[in-house]
């Protein structure tokens, strides 16, 4: 089984925001919600770099750990999803997330946020695959159709790569070797730090024995 991951190559990202637009269009996300965003560091200065960020589908996801109603689950593909029928819109996942991935459609007095919405790796939600109910609540389920997330498919410079973690890191490693510079995979250390390898060298999800 694949272990789905995103990787954004800062040497290639040109801050065109096509991934953001593609995501909004493909998933018909609520107004005001952006499941993906492009962040530029040192904008306008030498060394300027941009990165496209969304949910990284962490191995030991902080959002799932702090959720008071335990509405998160990880699919067999390593995609972190949540159940909007259980979510109470408390905002805790947003405080805990390292990437600022969880989004809320409203921000009003008395803690009114609406149900949390975030990147699903184009894998829908807990409802039947590609049903109208699933689409209206969670957006597209491209994974069920054998496709990868549209943001990565749309990326003109191939900065954003999505797919099985091993394949993604092979592609990135080859690039780094060829150009001989910047091999930093943003967020991987934070999102997958608890991933370890078992005795057969196979990547295993989750934390090592013990701990939180």
């Amino acid at each position: 089984m694949a272990r789905m991951k995103f990787l954004c190559d800062a040497e290639r990202c040109i801050e065109c925001n096509a991934c953001v637009t593609a995501c909004k269009n493909e998933n018909e996300v609520p107004w005001g919600v952006n499941r993906r965003r492009v962040v530029t560091i040192h904008d306008g200065s030498p060394g300027e770099r941009s990165l496209s960020v969304a949910c990284m589908h962490c191995s030991d996801a902080p959002c799932a750990a702090v959720c008071p109603v335990d509405c998160f689950y990880t699919t067999d593909d390593g995609v972190v999803l949540h159940d909007k029928d259980i979510c109470i819109g408390c905002g805790y996942c947003f405080y805990a997330c390292p990437f600022g991935a969880p989004q809320f459609p409203v921000a009003e007095a008395f803690g009114q946020r609406g149900k949390m919405d975030k990147c699903t790796f184009c894998a829908g939600g807990p409802l039947p695959d590609n049903s109208p109910e699933e689409y209206s609540k969670y957006g597209a389920n491209r994974l069920a159709e054998g496709k990868l997330p549209l943001c990565a498919e749309m990326c003109a410079t191939r900065a954003l790569i999505a797919g099985d973690g091993d394949t993604v890191s092979d592609i990135f490693r080859e690039r780094v070797t060829w150009r001989g510079s910047s091999g930093f995979a943003h967020g991987w250390g934070v999102a997958y730090k608890n991933q370890h390898r078992d005795s057969k060298g196979k990547a295993v999800e989750g934390k090592a024995a013990g701990g939180d």
């Binding site: 953001v20 965003r37 962040v39 560091i41 904008d43 750990a65 405080y95 990437f99 600022g100």
Partner: peptide
Amino acid sequence: NIGTSQVLGVDAGVLINDNGERWR
């Protein structure tokens, strides 16, 4: 370090939120 983003929102320019792990 705060970056800039076309997406508006609270803390949208922050790439890594270290306090999240502390709070968790």
